[in-house]
Amino acid sequence: MRRSWLPVGLLWLGYTVLLIALTKYVAILPAQWAEEAQVVDEAFILLMYLGSPVMALVLAVMTWGIIGWRSDGADREDGPNQQNNRVLVTTWLVITSALAIGVLINPGFVGLAEIRGEPSSDYVIGIQAAQFFWEITYPNGETALDELVVPAEKRVRYDVSSVDVLHSFWIPAFRVKIDAVPGVPTQVYTTATAEGTSDDDVNLRVQCAELCGAGHAAMAMPVRVVSDAEFNEYIESLGGSE
């Protein structure tokens, strides 16, 4: 009975270390351009760490199953009549419940609170979605269609709406998204952390993330993060060009 515990335990340890190392040293997440991205990425990495030993356990059993428990079946011999192990089942339930509760607290509730943040903002930008473009309304009432310009280090609230079908306002570099729903105003907050353009990172773009018709894939526009002063200059200049 005991002889399988050791190899499976060692395999489990090995796989866990491997998966945690992969999580730690392989950069799978794209560059962060907003405070919200930091919250999301922390939650993501934490879930990777918590998932590693779970993944490793099943992998260990599968590996040892192939190596250690293989039988050609020709002798038609049965394995041990092992039907239940109340202690093991209870322990398993306790551990998995604890893990579920742990995940719920952090990143669950912690992440939820952080991503939602304070309902306050330095600027409010209106985003109106339509098939298949975005119309931006800046705080001074000026509108634009071709590009979203946001100030760095400022908390911006986006008031999102739609005139036709469901769309979803998503900036991958900021991580957050919210659907644009006809008749239901929705909101999302971001605080950009660095200046940049979509030439620096393909994820600095507004991308529609809800199937909205033929032009869905192309319903995107670049995002440019600038300093607060440049932002105010830019939105003023929109008025001057008329």
């Binding site: 919250v39 992440g111 952080e114 991580r175 993330a209």
Partner: peptide, 11 residues
């Protein structure tokens, strides 16, 4: 998880 889903949803 809400925080990660807000990022990953519809991707």
């Amino acid at each position: 998880d809400v925080a990660t889903d807000i990022f990953l949803h519809d991707t």
